[in-house]
């Protein structure tokens, strides 16, 4: 069993981060109260300096993990430190604000940093939750393997479909072609099934979980009197049921994979935005010293 980055080296970075938080809180509480706590007091400057260095370092993980030749610690160690120091940054930066907020670039930088940290915390939670669920859903198969299963299923369906009447064949082939997986990002996140089928009498209908085409086949089965055709239709229904299950598994795989990664849409761009805002914050503070 591989060791999680969360417990890397007996949580060495959790201990360092805790120490940093405790020192920050102590410094904040013990500071000279001659002026209201703010980022410009000696303790405020110290907290701000530490927080700024931490932000630059935290964002450097993006470089470090791509630098395969580097021997400055391990990527796992870096990730462990990234997570714990990132959480500690919330405390350090919040104390640096002195709980003074306003409609300005300083508070903007703080909010962006908070979004980055909170999305990162979601990321840690997602990484502890979704990989297992993805594995359970796909029975340990990669997504490509699931699609291979689907292709095999479709080949069987098309071969069987040739034995049925022209109209039924057209409907089934159409239903295969009109199968949709995650047309939009939102559909992927909700595993929405927008598949449709063109029925001769009803036109284009929703074919969620292959239900409409199954109902169509059942109706044909009830109306038909050819025993061979009836058997073929029965087998087709079984195949359609298997296909529906396979599709929903793929959709769930897409959904879980996206939930595992969705936080990065916030985490990465807002990290750069926060870095820009913090840089401006520092420049502005010293321009208008």
């Amino acid at each position: 069993m591989t060791e999680s980055f969360l417990v890397h080296r007996s949580m060495r970075w959790l201990r360092w981060a805790s120490l940093l938080v405790v020192l920050s809180i102590f410094g904040y509480v013990a500071q000279d109260p001659s002026v209201d706590p703010n980022g410009g007091s000696p303790v405020g400057y110290a907290l701000g300096g530490v927080a700024a260095i931490m932000m630059f370092w935290l964002i450097w993980l993006g470089r470090r993990k791509r630098d395969y030749l580097s021997d400055v610690g391990t990527v796992k160690g870096w990730t462990s430190a990234h997570v714990y120091l990132g959480v500690a940054l919330i405390f350090v930066a919040t104390l640096h604000t002195g709980f003074q907020f306003g409609a300005n670039v300083h508070t903007l930088a703080y909010i962006l940093m908070l979004l980055v940290c909170l999305s990162g915390i979601y990321g840690v939670w997602a990484y502890s939750r979704y990989p297992l669920r993805i594995n359970e859903n796909s029975r340990g198969k990669m997504r490509a393997a699931l699609f291979e299963d689907l292709k095999e299923e479709d080949r069987q369906i098309v071969r069987l479909s040739n034995q049925l009447g022209e109209e039924v064949d057209k409907v089934i082939r159409g239903a295969l072609e009109r199968t949709e997986i995650g047309m939009s990002y939102f559909d992927q996140l909700t595993a929405k099934d927008r598949s449709s089928v063109q029925l001769p009498d009803k036109g284009l209908c929703s074919n969620r979980d292959m239900k409409t085409v199954a109902e169509y086949l059942v109706k044909h089965l009830q109306n038909g009197d050819n025993a061979d055709e009836a058997e073929a239709l029965q087998r087709m229904l079984t195949l359609m049921g298997r296909r529906a299950r396979l599709l929903s598994r793929i959709r769930e795989d897409v959904r879980l994979t996206e939930l595992l990664r969705i936080w990065l849409i916030v985490h990465i761009p807002f990290a750069f935005a926060a870095l820009a805002a913090v840089t401006i914050h520092i420049i502005a503070v010293f321009i208008y010293w």
């Binding site: 047309m183 990002y185 990465i268 761009p269 750069f272 820009a276």
Partner: peptide, 20 residues
């Protein structure tokens, strides 16, 4: 199946540049 963000036309890199 166009995966994830590509369907929204937004990339992490593009969004980063836009915000910055």
């Amino acid at each position: 199946l166009r995966e994830s963000l590509a369907t929204t036309g937004v990339s992490k890199r593009g969004l980063s540049w836009l915000l910055v």
